[in-house]
Design a protein around this nucleic acid. Structure first.
Lengths: 185, 185
DNA sequence: GTCTATAGCTAGATAGAC
DNA sequence: GTCTATCTAGCTATAGAC
């Protein structure tokens, strides 16, 4: 077998970059080819299912990243809760490039996007909720409070990303992350 | 002059419906023509600048709606603050169809959308902030607290719209609006 | 002012050489 | 596995009849 010109991870990062900036309809195969360094036909060789399959793969890739860098970090009982939280928030800050990038869930939350990837988006969001709910319980919140706090945390992250980009105030995202940290004190 | 087949307001509502569901790239002129009841060529007669001009017109239309149904309501000194807030929130609830619809600002916040309409999106968000800041001051918040509360209100609205749609829990948006109301008590 | 018809282009996707 | 070349369908936009 001829070796792959572009590794899987590199490929995913290129596709992710374009998909979250332009959305599913806005991201053309030419854009995706340019960003990954492969030609269109080569992308089809890797993903015979076309753009839809590429997007599903990216969502899996992101889910794995969140599993390792948010979920696993937040529930790691060998670390103190405060430490876990601050690491997870730092990773989230990096994931969204300090508020400059858009969330892939949001970029795909259009009519066609929700139809095609609604299940993966939902699962991804539920993962966030589950992880933050567990953290809340570990800092002695009762179950219901903990669920509410987790929900509000997700709302804050998503809302802050939109508002900071819309108002062109990048520091707003960092402030919101700080507010989230306080919630678990 | 031959009378218009479709009134301006009706036209705007049709365009808005499609644009916020599908985004700028996802909304084709065929979609827009079907939704408005006009043929593509007729849309170009009304908007010689094409899809970009149609979108700008929709953003103006929404800005006017927000002016009348949120801004004016929130700053109306002849009404008690509590009453103003509850009316404004009810209008926001209607604007987003109880959480089922997407915010037009968000739908247009992609790479191409921000490039073309970033200024209008920013102005629209700032209008929200200004209005809620004034409300905060009217319920005796100090200036800084009032600004923070207004920012958080916008974050809550935007975040709740995304999360409620992503998790497919429509009631979540209503709960968030209730939380916002409590903030100004 | 609205329509049918169509131009010109780019999209997603495929065939076949290497 | 990657590429160039190409197909078809859909896109935005326009011309011209009514």
């Amino acid at each position: 077998m001829r070796p792959q010109k572009v590794e899987h991870k590199e490929l995913m990062e290129g596709l992710l970059l374009v998909l979250r900036a332009k959305g599913y309809d806005g991201a053309s195969l030419s854009d995706l080819a340019t960003a990954t360094g492969l030609k269109k036909a080569s992308l089809y060789h890797r993903f015979p299912g076309g753009k839809q399959q590429m997007t599903e793969a990216v969502l899996e890739y992101v889910a794995d990243w969140v599993d390792a860098n948010v979920f696993a970090v937040l529930i790691d009982q060998t670390q103190p809760a405060k430490e876990r939280l601050s690491r997870a928030l730092a990773n989230i800050d990096a994931l969204y490039h300090r508020g400059k990038s858009i969330c892939i869930f949001r970029a795909l939350s259009t009519h066609s996007g929700l139809e095609l990837f609604g299940q993966q988006i939902r699962a991804g969001m539920e993962k966030y909720i589950t992880a933050f709910t567990r953290l809340g319980e570990d800092v002695q919140m009762d179950v219901e409070t903990s669920k509410q706090a987790a929900l509000q945390t997700l709302i804050d992250i998503q809302g802050a990303l939109i508002v900071s980009k819309g108002l062109q105030q990048q520091d707003l995202f960092g402030k919101t992350l700080a507010n989230i940290a306080e919630r678990y004190n």
